[in-house]
Design a protein around this nucleic acid. Sequence first.
DNA 1: TCATCATTAAATAAAAATATTGAATGTTAC
DNA 2: GTAACATTCAATATTTTTATTTAATGATGA
Lengths: 209, 209
Amino acid sequence: MSISETHLKGARLNDLADLAKTLGNSHRLLLLEHIGGGEKTVEALSDLAGLSVANASQHLQQLKRSGFVQSRREGKNVLYRLGGGPIAALLAALRACAEHNRSEIRELISDSLWQQDKLEAISREELLQRMQETEIVLLDVRSESEYAAGHLPGAVNIPLDELELRLAEVPRDQEVVAYCRGNYCALSGKAVTILRALGRNARQLRGGM
Amino acid sequence: MSISETHLKGARLNDLADLAKTLGNSHRLLLLEHIGGGEKTVEALSDLAGLSVANASQHLQQLKRSGFVQSRREGKNVLYRLGGGPIAALLAALRACAEHNRSEIRELISDSLWQQDKLEAISREELLQRMQETEIVLLDVRSESEYAAGHLPGAVNIPLDELELRLAEVPRDQEVVAYCRGNYCALSGKAVTILRALGRNARQLRGGM
DNA sequence: TCATCATTAAATAAAAATATTGAATGTTAC
DNA sequence: GTAACATTCAATATTTTTATTTAATGATGA
């Protein structure tokens, strides 16, 4: 009994994982979004998503296998529409989780937590000075627009993509502390990997814990 | 404006995709499930999930980056617990989608659709006879337990894993029509690939469309 | 039927995720 | 401080995804 139970449970988890995996690609999410706007042909969708027709077709078929979309033929064209299930609810839940994570970062950026002393407010100048005293550079590896929207006081912005190119901007003799969008984001980890590979002394800044 | 908007939207979609990707692995889902039952150490979790400690640690860290779990240290051990966000809702939505897909198959299995004439009930014998007349073998490539739980009348069960081994059981001169769990399932597609590679005349049975 | 076109399939190459191993880190207890 | 232990990091090999290219399919309309 326990064997078949385990087996069933395993199968269930695999089904769930397959569904999630299908959603785990931004091209497919974009396709889903466009399809949600109304029935569309493969060609229209490939244009909208900036994909080759063949590649779009592949993604559409994966979406179809997962039940997220359905298709029908009309003359020469195949039209894709949203599937029947509780897809909207699933996407909404995903968005809610992402939003929740984002708000956690806002808390991090706006106040507390960044100070040793959680209650004492700290000025930008003061943090800068502390950073200089301890020979630390605070590095924001998010995109320029994210940086513009809000960042830690004194942080230097070099998007991860440009890190190797703009390495000269990172002082060679200071420890680098990289941060990105918070716990759920892998950017700063990659930045640390790159920086270490290039001989710098780098660490990752982690909120919460 | 439109550029930055697109950019933001792209970033958003990537965030969503990253979250979904994190859920797109059955080991991580299993870990999440166990963590949902209460705070646990890495070692306990690796045991429960049947993973090496290092591997479990990696998965846990990915779950943490995505905000699905949080961790704290207690003495020698690090304890993982569920994260704060609307994780339960997300998992519930995933399950709902999987359940919806499953029920679509049940419909397929229990009635209609399989007949040319949608209203006329058809006996097992009659379908078998039709299949013989048209020289078709209906092949169920799901697991034995799934087959036992319900299958199309007259279908032969050879789980995908065993297909190459048990090829002799597939009549050589008949067209093979393979099916699995429905539109969202890739098993029968793989079966068709295998059968064709081995020189058989095989097609995939698709519901809905 | 044949020519044409949109779509899908198949095969390959490129990129990413996963599991494994051995080493490094950080904590407790002595 | 040092030893023992749990966890994480880093590097690697293996296995999946993804994108691209080229060929096949399937429907339309002459």
